[in-house]
Nucleic acid binder design. Structure first.
Lengths: 193, 193
DNA sequence: ATTCATACTTGACAGTGTCTAGTACGAAAA
DNA sequence: TTTTCGTACTAGACACTGTCAAGTATGAAT
């Protein structure tokens, strides 16, 4: 929404926080340290975000916005492509992804603009599933298949990112190949391919 | 392993921590508060676990042990049943589950006994998938299908537990029915059903 | 009688998020 | 031109946290 309002400190805080989230996880983010690194007082970041949860909400908003872009840009192959795009987004934007999906860090319900972006991304998924199922699909069918497809992508993403899969499936030469294969397995559960 | 070594404080700390994790998430666990509630000094819990990560490792060990039991007890219907059992375990043991799967809280690699229990649970999954695929399955097939099935279960579990699915799919009358349907969709991606 | 491990207690330290109050400053209003 | 006022901070204090270090009580083993 806000069109390039400069606000350099706000941008710096966000970038540093996302980088820490990527490298060490969201819990490692200390706003006092961020402030120190940015050369400002320990209270300066709070001016822009209110409190800690506010920063996480801002990260989530940005993350969901980027996710929507990724889903739109990369979904060449319908269902399967969207699933792949989701997982790739998570791996490439780990800093954002880790925060977005933790509603103990930022309850989206309290941050309308973040919720708006989340809804936008969710609707892309919903539309894709609805289109794939065709006209004959019941509401239950759509919900079930949406939950299923999201689960596959989300599960693979979190397992690869933070879960034990990273270790357990070591020896897998090409992660991208695994993602593609899993996404196609998911697709094969849909009628009419 | 340790056969009922009494150690009541150890047990109390674990139980209280798991309860907090269930109700407010692992980050809400304050060991000083746990100690206060248990009526002991703030340092008493640390005697049993070393540090904060040690407590999380203990919770993870117990959680993976319980997960194995759940997978063994409940997998009536092969692949589909195991997937369902995984999700139900997560919902019923949210306190444990949230900790188990966060390796930023407890790096299993540093806690052999927790890692042992995690391996045990993982092997149950691997065996089930291998059996379902039959003799002709390649190693890649097994890995892909294992990652796929785990992803479905893990994704659905985390989305229902902490993710936005909880909200997005509101209106779903029966969560158990959703779990069952999603698990069966996953099964339909396997050859020979 | 002494040693020794277990199960704690007590005190201190650095670090954190947050509340409150104060300051510098550029733009709008009088 | 002076005053008002919102923005972007700074500064200090508070309660709280995990952790380090050192001390204490106690029961079993030597």
């Amino acid at each position: 929404m806000s069109v390039a309002t400069a606000d350099p400190l706000r941008r710096v805080v966000l970038d540093v926080a996302v980088a820490i989230s990527r490298d060490e996880g969201p819990d490692a983010i200390s706003l006092r340290k961020v402030a120190r690194d940015a050369g400002v007082s320990h209270q300066a970041p709070y001016h822009h975000f209110g409190d800690r949860a506010g920063i996480f909400a801002a990260i989530a908003e940005e993350g969901f916005s980027k996710l929507s872009e990724a889903l739109i840009a990369d979904h060449n192959d319908g269902i399967s492509g969207m699933c792949e795009a989701y997982v790739r987004f998570a791996l490439e934007h780990a800093g954002h992804f880790r925060v977005m999906m933790r509603n103990d860090l930022c309850d989206l319900q309290n941050y309308p603009s973040a919720l708006f972006q989340a809804d936008r991304a969710f609707n892309l998924l919903l539309e894709e599933v609805t289109a794939a199922l065709g006209n004959g699909a019941s509401d239950d069918d759509i919900k079930t298949h949406t939950a299923f497809l999201w689960s596959v992508g989300h599960g693979l993403a979190t397992l690869l990112l933070d879960g034990p899969l990273e270790i357990k499936l070591e020896g897998i030469a090409d992660v991208n190949a695994l993602i593609q294969r899993v996404a196609r397995l998911a697709t094969s559960s849909f009628p009419n391919q």
